[in-house]
Computed example of a mutant assay.
Amino acid sequence: MLERDRIGMQELGASIFYRYKLAMLDGTSVPDLGGVFTGMSTEEFKAALMAGGRIPG
Rank of each mutant, 00 (worst) to 15 (best):
I7D: 12
I7Y: 06
I7V: 14
I7P: 01
G8W: 02
M9H: 01
M9K: 15
Q10M: 07
E11V: 02
E11K: 07
E11N: 04
E11W: 01
E11D: 05
L12S: 14
L12Y: 10
L12F: 08
L12R: 12
G13S: 05
G13P: 00
G13R: 00
G13W: 03
A14N: 03
A14M: 15
A14S: 13
S15Y: 05
S15C: 12
Y18L: 13
Y18E: 13
Y18G: 10
Y18I: 10
Y18M: 13
Y20Q: 07
Y20H: 06
K21D: 14
K21Y: 09
L22F: 07
L22D: 13
L22K: 06
L22E: 12
A23C: 09
M24V: 13
M24A: 09
L25T: 12
L25W: 13
D26C: 13
G27Q: 08
G27K: 01
G27A: 06
T28F: 06
S29F: 04
S29I: 07
V30K: 08
P31C: 02
P31H: 04
D32R: 10
D32F: 10
D32H: 15
G34F: 03
G34E: 01
G35N: 00
G35I: 00
G35P: 03
G35V: 03
G35Y: 04
G35R: 02
V36H: 03
V36D: 08
V36S: 01
F37S: 01
F37H: 14
F37E: 07
F37G: 06
T38F: 03
T38N: 09
T38E: 06
T38I: 00
G39E: 00
M40Y: 08
S41Y: 06
T42P: 02
T42F: 04
E43T: 11
E43M: 11
E43Q: 13
E43I: 10
E44L: 04
E44D: 14
E44T: 11
F45S: 01
F45Y: 10
F45L: 02
K46F: 10
K46W: 06
K46D: 14
A47K: 09
A47W: 10
A47C: 12
A47V: 15
A47D: 13
A47Q: 10
A48F: 01
L49W: 10
L49S: 06
L49K: 14
L49R: 12
M50Q: 14
M50L: 15
M50G: 14
